[in-house]
C-alpha cells in the first residue's frame, strides 16, 4: 500500500464490510405486494386473459366461495388426514430402521444396499401396485406417502447418528455408562439436529406425493380438487387449490421450525 509523503498523515481506507446478508422484513413484504399488485393491474387492464390466469382478487373470491360452502373443509380434511398418517408412520418406521443402522453393524450391512436400491424409485410409480394390494381407498395413498417418507428418513437418521461426535461416545464409555444409556443420553440427542433437518425434506416429499396420489385416484383432497377444477376450466378454483398447497407447505415448515427451536434450544 502506498503511503503519501513521508510525515504526512492519511487515514486508513476502510476495506471491510459486505458479504454478510441480513434479512430485511420490509423488503420481503414489499416484494410480495409489488408482484401481486402488478399481477392485479395486468389482469384488470386485460393484458392477462382471465380464463388462463385469473387475477389475485378472483382467486381470493374463489377461495372464499369454497370456504363458505364446505368444499374446502371436505377436501382439506381428506388431504390432512392422509399426509398426517403417511408422514407419521413413515417417519416412525424410518427412524427405527435408520437409528438401528446407525448403531449396529449388521443392520447397516443389510440396510444400506436395500435402501440404496429402493430409494431412487419415484414412489408414485408404486401407487398402481399399492392400489392392487390395498384397494382404491385411503390405505393405498397413505402407503405411497409412507414409502416416500420412509427412505429419506432412514438415510438422514443413520447419517445423523454417524455424525454424533465420537469423543462424546468415548467419554460415555470412559465413565462406564451402560450401552442403552449411551444411546439414549448421547447418541439420540446428538443425532437430533440431523433428524430434524431430515423432517424438512421428508415433509416436502410427503406433500408432493399427496397431490400426485390424489390426482391419480381420489374423490376428495386438494389434488383431486385441482384436477377436477382443471377439467372444468375453472382456473380460479384451480389456483385457489394451488394457493392452499402453498399455505399448507408454509404451515408445515413453520411447525417444524417451532419444533427445532424447542428441541434444539441448546444450539
Amino acid at each position: 500500500m502506498s503511503i503519501g509523503d513521508s510525515g504526512k498523515e492519511t487515514s486508513v481506507r476502510f476495506r471491510g464490510g459486505g458479504f454478510a446478508p441480513r434479512p430485511k422484513r420490509w423488503a420481503s413484504w414489499l416484494a410480495f405486494a409489488v408482484i401481486i399488485s402488478a399481477w392485479q393491474i395486468a389482469s384488470m387492464s386485460g393484458a392477462l386473459p382471465a380464463l388462463f390466469l385469473p387475477s389475485p382478487y378472483e382467486i381470493a373470491l374463489a377461495l372464499q366461495a369454497i370456504a363458505a360452502d364446505g368444499t374446502l373443509a371436505r377436501h382439506l380434511g381428506a388431504s390432512l388426514g392422509r399426509i398426517a398418517w403417511g408422514w407419521s408412520l413413515g417417519t416412525l418406521a424410518g427412524l427405527a430402521v435408520g437409528i438401528s443402522m446407525g448403531i449396529w453393524s449388521l443392520a447397516r450391512s443389510v440396510g444400506i444396499p436395500i435402501v440404496s436400491a429402493l430409494f431412487p424409485i419415484p414412489k408414485i410409480a408404486l401407487l398402481p401396485l399399492l392400489i392392487l394390494w390395498f384397494g382404491i381407498g385411503e390405505p393405498s395413498k397413505v402407503a405411497t406417502i409412507l414409502l416416500g417418507v420412509f427412505f429419506p428418513t432412514v438415510i438422514s437418521a443413520y447419517s445423523a447418528v454417524d455424525n454424533v461426535p465420537r469423543n462424546l461416545i468415548r467419554m460415555g464409555q470412559s465413565f462406564d455408562m451402560p450401552y442403552a444409556q449411551i444411546v439414549r443420553k448421547i447418541v439420540l440427542p446428538g443425532a437430533m439436529p440431523g433428524i430434524l433437518a431430515g423432517f424438512r425434506i421428508s415433509s416436502s416429499i410427503a406433500l408432493i406425493l399427496l397431490v400426485a396420489a390424489e390426482m391419480i385416484g381420489a374423490e376428495f383432497g386438494i389434488g383431486a380438487f385441482i384436477l377436477s377444477a382443471g377439467n372444468l376450466m375453472q382456473t380460479d378454483q384451480l389456483l385457489a387449490g394451488v394457493v392452499l398447497l402453498s399455505m399448507l407447505g408454509l404451515l408445515i415448515s413453520a411447525l417444524l421450525a417451532r419444533l427445532e427451536r424447542r428441541v434444539l434450544k441448546w444450539r
Binding site: N167, L168, R170, M171, K185, I186, P189, G190, M192, L264, W266, R267
Partner: peptide, 9 residues
C-alpha cells in the same frame, strides 16, 4: 479430555 467432551444439550 483435551476437548472437554461436554454434552452441549
Amino acid at each position: 479430555f483435551q476437548d472437554f467432551a461436554l454434552l452441549p444439550w
